[in-house]
Write a protein that binds this DNA or RNA. Structure first.
Length: 534
DNA sequence: GATCAAGGCCAC
DNA sequence: GTGGCCTTGATC
């Protein structure tokens, strides 16, 4: 199936998002992923913008670009909820009957999911745990069907442990928001169709990417948080310390330290289960040290304050543990390297989402955006991990639902355990520099907005962005950390070290990929390939 | 009272 | 075991 689907890639994803920066247009298009010439083809429907919703296209359809879009001029202004629900089940492609356990699914997948969770069923796959699930074959492999249910975002915690009937659950408001967004999407599609058809007629792009979870959504729309819009006025912004704390608001009370970073049982695995280490964050801001006074904190540039607002650590944690949970539920043992690749892949998607909504970057042409991301993704993954460890207390490992230990540190090492010493040295160096959240986000921008990347068309824009961030960081370090000798210079010197570490990790991942040990058709692998081509 | 997402029932 | 239809009950 899906053989006639059009190609779609990071570039097109970025292109669509760029075109919608002003209008916040959300569009759905069928995708085909093609990694080189050896990978099987596959089609998905991706909803562009940050709010990504996937459904498998119906069997044998999806040939025409925009096949899932209403023809121009037919978008119904009178679209109501019922029309919106005229969608396909993301698990099997059957007709959706309503929201069930977190998302729109068909009646049969609803029942299947309920039976599985209520009766604590354990299935096995007689093949390779990658069976294709569609309406006609969904009964063949319950293992893969259930896996797909989890992959697309069906929520275990929505199945009631007490089996009480009726009423509403805590997802009610989420369903409502999702509906509202879909309705808005319907109204905006007509405009998007024109843009989309224009982009398809540009001749297509070379690379495609997909979720690592064979023909399933990367994220459900209703699970994607809104990224800060950078539109709040500087005058109304709080100081950096307060901002750093607010970024993670609202926060639940910290759970007991021993299970702070552990996935809970299926019935308690709400996102809140993975609490943010507020104390670690507070310690990472200058206001909690003797370095600065509140007056000095207020002198932090509005730009840095807004940079800090683009950070969503809570979502990072929820995504991480959500994935670890869904990938290990009902499984005796999982391939930990494969799981690590899936987590890295998910992190990469988040990174693309983050980047394309940030100032400087979002105004660049898609080609430039791609080059910058291809050059910096691994550096940023390493940096993100340093940040999570230093500011949020991310531990070295966590215990999965099935009892396996998952090496969280190895995520930051991109799978190379021997880099642990180097990584820890780097972390210690940063700790000595009192590396805080504003430092982190500025360094991240410096990694992304690298004007030295070859082939950039709008070098001036990138360089301007880089220099602006550089100046802001210099100002911040001088203002808030006057007692640390040349903090700015030392931070800049850390960048090549991060790059060296990331390059080793990339090489390792590529080798494992070539050896057939890493999941294929992932954004991670696309990035690895892309850098080697450039 | 209407809605709708839970769980339950039962023919297949 | 599956899946279509029914019942329930909190929320709007």
């Amino acid at each position: 199936m899906h053989e006639d689907a059009p190609k779609m890639s990071v570039a097109q994803n970025l292109a669509a998002s760029t075109s919608q920066n002003k209008g916040d247009v959300v569009i759905s298009v069928p995708l085909e992923y093609e990694m080189g010439s050896v990978e099987p083809k596959q089609a998905e429907t991706i909803e562009l913008d940050l709010k990504i919703a996937y459904v498998d296209p119906p069997n044998g359809t999806g040939g025409e670009p925009g096949a899932y879009l209403p023809a121009a001029g037919t978008v119904c202004d009178q679209a109501d909820t019922k029309d919106v629900i005229e969608e396909l089940c993301p698990v099997c492609g059957d007709k959706v009957s309503g929201y069930h356990y977190g998302l729109l699914t068909c009646e049969s997948c609803k029942g299947f999911f309920k039976r599985t969770v209520q009766n604590k069923k354990v299935y096995t796959c007689v093949a390779e745990r990658a069976c294709h699930i569609d309406k006609t074959q969904r009964k063949r492999c319950p293992f893969c069907r259930f896996q797909k249910c989890l992959d697309v975002g069906m929520k275990l915690e929505a199945v009631r442990a007490d089996r009480m009937r009726g009423g509403r659950n805590k997802f009610g408001p989420m369903y409502k928001r999702d509906r509202a967004r879909k309705l808005q999407m319907m109204r905006q599609r007509q405009m998007a169709v024109q843009t989309l058809r224009g982009s398809f007629s540009d001749g297509g792009l070379v690379l495609g990417f997909s979720s690592p979870y064979a023909s399933v959504p990367v994220k459900q729309e209703i699970q994607i948080p809104q990224v800060s819009s950078l539109t709040s006025s500087p005058e109304s912004s709080p100081g950096p310390a307060l901002l750093a704390a607010q970024t993670q608001q609202p926060q639940p009370p910290p759970p007991p330290a021993h299970d702070k970073w552990e996935a809970h049982s299926p019935h308690s695995a709400s996102p809140d289960a993975f609490a943010f280490d507020a104390s670690a964050t507070t310690a990472a801001t200058p206001s909690s040290t003797a370095e600065t006074t509140s007056t000095e904190a207020l002198r932090v540039s509005p730009m840095i304050r807004e940079f800090v607002q683009t950070i969503d650590d809570r979502e990072w944690q929820n995504s991480l543990f959500g994935l670890l949970q869904s990938q290990t539920y009902n499984q005796c043992e999982v391939d930990l390297f494969e799981l690590m690749c899936k987590v890295l892949d998910q992190n990469l998607f988040s990174q693309v989402d983050w980047a394309r909504n940030t100032v400087f970057f979002k105004y660049l042409k898609v080609d430039d955006q791609m080059k910058l991301l291809q050059h910096s993704w691994s550096d940023m993954l390493v940096l993100d991990h340093l940040h999570q460890r230093m500011h949020n207390g991310l531990p070295d490992e966590t215990t999965l639902h099935n009892g396996q230990k998952f090496d969280l540190l190895c995520l930051g090492l991109l799978g190379v355990p021997s880099l642990a010493d180097h990584f820890n040295e780097l972390q210690n160096k940063l700790s000595e520099l009192k590396f805080d959240i504003p430092d982190y986000i500025c360094v991240k921008f410096l990694l992304l907005l690298n004007p030295e990347v070859r082939g950039i068309v709008n070098v001036k824009c990138v360089r301007d962005g880089y220099q602006t961030v550089q100046a802001a960081l210099l100002d911040y370090t001088l203002t808030c950390y006057p007692t640390i000798q040349d903090k700015f210079g030392k931070l800049v010197m850390v960048v090549p070290e991060i790059h060296a570490l990331a390059a080793r990790g990339e090489e390792h991942l590529y080798q494992r990929h070539c050896a057939g040990q890493a999941p294929t058709q992932t954004l991670l692998m696309e990035m690895l390939h892309a850098k080697r081509k450039s």
